[in-house]
Simulated scan of single mutants.
Amino acid sequence: MISPKIGMGLVVAVLFALLFVMLSYSSGYGQVIDGEVRFIRKPLVTHIVKDYRLDGGEWSFGYFVPVAVAGLFWLRRKELLNTAVEPALVGGGAFLVFGFLFYWAGYRGEQKYFGYAAGQILVLGTILWFLGWRWFGKLFWLWMLLGMMWPWRFLIERVSAPLQLIMIKLTSWFLNVVGAGAVASGSSLSTSALDPVTGDPIALDVHAACSGMRSLFALVMIGLVFSFLRVKEEWKRWVLMACVPLVAVAGNFVRILMLFGGSAVWGTDFAVGEGHEMSTFHLVAGLMVFVVALVLLSLMVAVMEGGWQKVFKRSKVVRREVSREVG
């Protein structure tokens, strides 16, 4: 005999599967079949998988979001399952109706982003309808993390342009301070330093991927995981998330400096790559974005949670014990 809770969960799962996996939703820009452009509606899950592959796989981390949400829920299951269940039928019903209307509007207008937004709203409504506001308060950051599953590709250009300007100005200023003689022009950076192989001035193009945009959205996901696991108070979580863009910029600043340093020592082809091919050094420099970001996020968490004070007090205790033994 299936319990009512399991039965309701199965009904909700089937409903979401129908809306996002089975029902054809939008056709996008169409596809060429036998030399003709045809507009064939496809399920939202098909659009999601396709969007994960576009823009150099910018949003491919979305595959891991559901796994991360499930894993974090499991780690905090004892605390979460002790939360009182107080279904908010009015609030939950309102969000469910709004979510279905949003879904319908996207279907009629063939706008997949409306479908993505509807999915996030429907998850919110489901939590409130069955579990209540207390549960949503506990699950808020997991709900936010789930929002990173939807590929919001329209944000890419809006975010990359200002970050490109920030990276160009920051790097140009720093290189001029250290005497490298840098001049910024659009998204390019020219320096007075010479390539040791070709003898030409070293020039770097700060594309969207190097501006902090590529790492920003992935770092938002990492920041959400950090905030859920490592930070206890809500205001600290908001501070941590607000600093994620700055962390992304800092990581990419280190990346560009590594590319400049590698170009100055071993040549641009070695450090950056030849033509459109990325070199191994360039790949390693890209990974440093996440290393720097993780270090900075960890330090921020340590500061907000009083970790440094604990370390400082512990070191004082150790020094006292050592001095007593020596004395």
Rank of each mutant, 00 (worst) to 15 (best):
A105G: 04
I6C: 07
E157Y: 09
R41M: 11
S263L: 10
L283M: 14
D200A: 11
G56V: 02
L175N: 01
R255D: 03
A84E: 15
L19R: 04
I2R: 09
V265D: 11
F281S: 10
G9V: 03
T191A: 07
L146M: 10
L124P: 11
L139V: 01
V249W: 09
K313A: 12
M288W: 15
A17I: 15
H282R: 14
G251P: 05
G223Q: 03
I156V: 12
R319G: 02
Y107M: 07
V220H: 04
S315N: 10
L72E: 00
A84F: 09
M8V: 13
V254T: 07
L122E: 09
G132L: 09
A70H: 07
A117V: 12
L23D: 07
A302G: 08
G93C: 06
G327P: 04
V97K: 13
Y63F: 15
K316A: 11
A193M: 14
Y103C: 00
L216A: 04
T280D: 15
D205K: 13
G99F: 04
G306S: 09
R53Y: 12
D269Y: 07
V284M: 14
G262N: 05
S190D: 14
R230W: 11
L72F: 02
P196Y: 05
E234A: 01
W129C: 10
G286F: 13
V178Y: 12
N176S: 06
K232C: 02
L142T: 01
R320T: 10
I6P: 03
P87D: 02
A94D: 08
K112I: 10
V69S: 07
